[in-house]
Amino acid sequence: MFYVIFAIILISINCSLVGPYVVLRRISFIGDAIAHTILPGIVIAYMIGFNNFWGALVAAIITAIGIGWFTGRNDIREDTAIGIIFTALFALGILLMSKTDLSDEEFHHMLFGDILTIGQNQLIIIAAISVVILITEFLLRKELELATFDPMYSKQIGSRPDILRYVILILIALTVVSAIQAAGILLVSALLITPSATSIMLSNKLFKINLISIFVSILSCTAGIYLAFKFNVSASASIVIVVTIIFAVVWLNKSNRNSKPVKR
């Protein structure tokens, strides 16, 4: 249980640090995409006898760099690039998988994960990636924010929004790869988007957005796991339902406040 609690906290921190960039750059699809594109990496690693994690990591980073390169050319939109690379690599993974003796059950576990069965090694990997994300985002916080908000001004002053886009994409890839085998595609995608989308409605400062998002994630995970035990249902699915309810409550509250007539 200790491992599970630690994993939830670290996955929440990782997703909440990169999540606002995913939402603000309008690339919400990316978590889901990277989670699928790691399949060929995992299968190739399995075929040549390497650890699954390294296969997944290489595939995720290739996806991130591929998306960055495609969109940097300006003739393909970022969401189109994500869609093309995602489906092509997933298809390649399925083709390769049919040539191996991987069982459906193993495949299912790789992609859908189970947070309650997390081991020490996975926890160490997630913690190492938390350190990388924390240091990168701490040092580059003003540059990453400006490149997301106003890439043209960022380019004019020479702070290289083109390279910073790769930095963000690689941080997203690291987050997804580290969390996927514990949390699964559904939960990683949800934790990347929903807590950040919720906290963006509550603050105008990126640091506060990160903190609120971490709080929302940990709260949802704790409540979701409790409900999963109580009703004997999937933990990942319950967490996603809880985080979506929190989002809906904040959103309804905010839109209700915005629609009230202003006193003159």
């Binding site: 603000l24 924010e145 997301t148 908000f149 106003d150 963006i200 105008n204 400062k205 990126l206 957005i209």
Partner: peptide, 12 residues
């Protein structure tokens, strides 16, 4: 050309 919905204050 600016994303005015971005969570940012005028001072920032």
């Amino acid at each position: 050309e600016i994303d005015w919905k971005f969570p940012m204050t005028i001072r920032n």
